[in-house]
């Protein structure tokens, strides 16, 4: 397992290098045309393949034309200024956008090769496989045990009790709560609540975990615990995280996508657009696009 991972890494680095030169070449043409962001960076087995994905709410475009490939068993970070549509993009990946009646998704969102928005696809099944952790911890107003057990019970999974314990252990929460499983989850601290939400998510055996700024409501110590947890979880899950905290992206993610807010000439319409997607290290040390550089060095924010 370990050696496999190492091999994968070397391979991925090589591919990345090759890609980046390719990109440098292709970029010139893009600049001449419309400065489109670089596309597919397939590494290992891809989980998601986005091809020209866009989202609009009530006819107003929120994100447009995003193409990228998200790899399995790694952490992919989406960063960018507020309003760049990174959360909107994340919510496409498990069809949470369906809950907004006026939302429309364009392009192709492939999950292991199946279009998530295909006619045969059931959003409920999608969400069983692709879980989500939200910006604000949102435990159910129930006991700690019931919070975790809800998912397995609803999905009719076996061995609920065992699952609850496993999930709490994997979320590094078991030792803190094992004696008060019947207490209301609202009595926990913010950081514990968020780890509970992560535990709740992994209790139903998802394939992917989407995290929408999971630490933005937490103090630095709780954030640190969640980051450690993410690094452990990526052994088993593919993780996509939206964060406004660049250092966090740099610390935990393998790949980083940078999105910006674009304005049209009248400055009336604004939408998010992907600028650059690459190895995290490259994005933060040697970005290909000057706008990425300005953002990660703090020149603009």
């Amino acid at each position: 397992m370990n050696s496999n991972g190492e091999e994968g890494k070397v391979e991925s680095q090589m591919t990345a290098k090759k890609k980046s030169t390719e990109k440098a070449l292709s970029r010139k043409i893009e600049v001449a045309e419309r400065r489109l962001p670089s596309a597919s960076e397939a590494v290992g087995e891809p989980v998601f393949g986005l091809e020209g994905v866009g989202v609009s709410y009530g006819g107003k475009v929120a994100v447009r034309d995003v193409s990228m490939t998200i790899g399995a068993k790694e952490i992919t970070a989406l960063i960018g200024p507020s309003g760049c549509g990174k959360s909107t993009l994340l919510r496409c990946l498990n069809r949470m956008n369906d809950l907004v009646p006026s939302a429309e998704v364009f392009g192709k969102c492939l999950y292991h090769g199946t279009d998530l928005y295909g006619p045969e696809v059931d959003p409920v099944e999608v969400r069983k496989l692709i879980g989500m952790v939200f910006q604000k911890p949102n435990p159910f107003p129930k006991s700690i045990y019931d919070n975790i057990a809800f998912g397995p019970k609803v999905l009719g999974l076996p061995d609920v009790e065992e699952r609850v314990e496993r999930a709490l252990r994997s979320a590094a929460l078991w030792d803190e709560v094992k004696d008060r499983l019947d207490d209301n989850a609202y009595g926990m601290s913010g950081g514990q609540q968020q780890r509970l939400c992560i535990a709740r998510c992994i209790a139903v055996d998802p394939d992917v975990i989407l995290m929408d700024e999971p630490c933005s409501a937490l103090d630095p110590i709780s954030s640190g615990k969640i980051e450690d947890l993410m690094l452990e979880l990526k052994e088993d899950f593919s993780i996509v995280i939206v964060t406004h905290n660049m250092q966090q992206a740099a610390r935990v993610s393998d790949k980083t996508a940078f999105l910006i807010v674009e304005l049209d000439s009248t400055e009336e319409n604004r939408w998010g657009q992907l600028v650059e997607y690459d190895e995290t290290e490259k994005i933060f040390t040697n970005p290909a696009d000057s706008r990425t550089e300005d953002y990660v060095t703090g020149k603009v924010g």
């Binding site: 045969e120 496989l129 394939d207 052994e235």
Partner: peptide, 17 residues
């Protein structure tokens, strides 16, 4: 135990069960 969770992934069908 945590490893165990990822092991038995359900089949990746997105159609209604």
């Amino acid at each position: 135990m945590a490893r165990g969770i990822g092991a038995d992934k359900p089949p990746r069908s997105l159609r209604s069960s």
